[in-house]
């Protein structure tokens, strides 16, 4: 870890990350829309270079009063590593289970299953989309539960990051006509930013 070199991104690079995220998030949303038989409302993705302890601020789509459940999944490819977080507003689960026609009681175990199912789809498709555009093949680790029915600050605290700065992409998905709200956060490590910037510069070249 090189703490002495300060990382940064230019406005052009930020715009490029945003557009890449926009395309990747659209591909992921299309899969989710087909799975649930709904229309996913797409936001404009938010790209920021932030301190890891400012993560809470990056999650603009979720209110403080809500209880949430979340998973995270590490990824790595071509010297670019990071973590993807998927955080659900707990009110989302009853609608998701009925859309997927799950039978039985909606308990913590079933909620976890739903969380993992959606996380697999959204995180996988989003990373694939970003990877395709940047010519990187990401491998994903096993998903890890960050917490269920907790407040957002506790959910984020439970994670122990070894890097300080992160390139954060926040995508807030909502489903039209349903009470489903989730935040997908793709966090690239500090060390990855230089490599990513070079890849993006290549795309920005005339």
């Amino acid at each position: 870890m090189n703490q002495s070199v300060s990382v940064s991104i230019t406005e052009d690079q930020r715009d490029c990350y945003q557009e890449i995220s926009n395309v990747a998030m659209g591909q992921a949303a299309d899969l989710l829309a087909r799975l649930l038989g709904v229309k996913v409302i797409l936001p404009i993705p938010v790209v920021n270079l932030i301190e890891v302890n400012e993560l809470r601020m990056a999650l603009s789509g979720i209110e403080n009063s809500d209880t949430v459940s979340g998973v995270c999944q590490g990824f790595i490819g071509n010297a670019i590593s990071g973590e993807a977080l998927l955080i659900f507003n707990d009110t989302s689960f009853s609608d998701i289970s009925s859309l997927l026609q799950y039978k039985g009681v909606l308990d913590a175990a079933l909620e976890l299953e739903l969380l993992m199912d959606v996380a697999n789809i959204l995180i996988g498709a989003c990373l694939r989309g970003i990877g395709e555009q940047l010519d990187v093949n990401f491998s994903q680790g096993h998903p890890v539960v960050l917490g269920q029915h907790v407040n957002l600050n506790d959910l984020l605290k439970s994670d122990n990051y070894r890097w300080t700065k992160t390139l954060a992409i926040e995508i807030n998905y909502k489903i039209e006509g349903y009470d489903i709200n989730c935040d997908l956060l793709i966090l690239f490590t500090e060390d990855a930013i230089d490599v990513l910037n070079r890849k993006v510069d290549y795309l920005l070249e005339d």
Partner: peptide
């Protein structure tokens, strides 16, 4: 030309 590729 769109990133939102949902059928709708």
């Amino acid at each position: 030309v769109s990133g939102d590729i949902q059928p709708e």
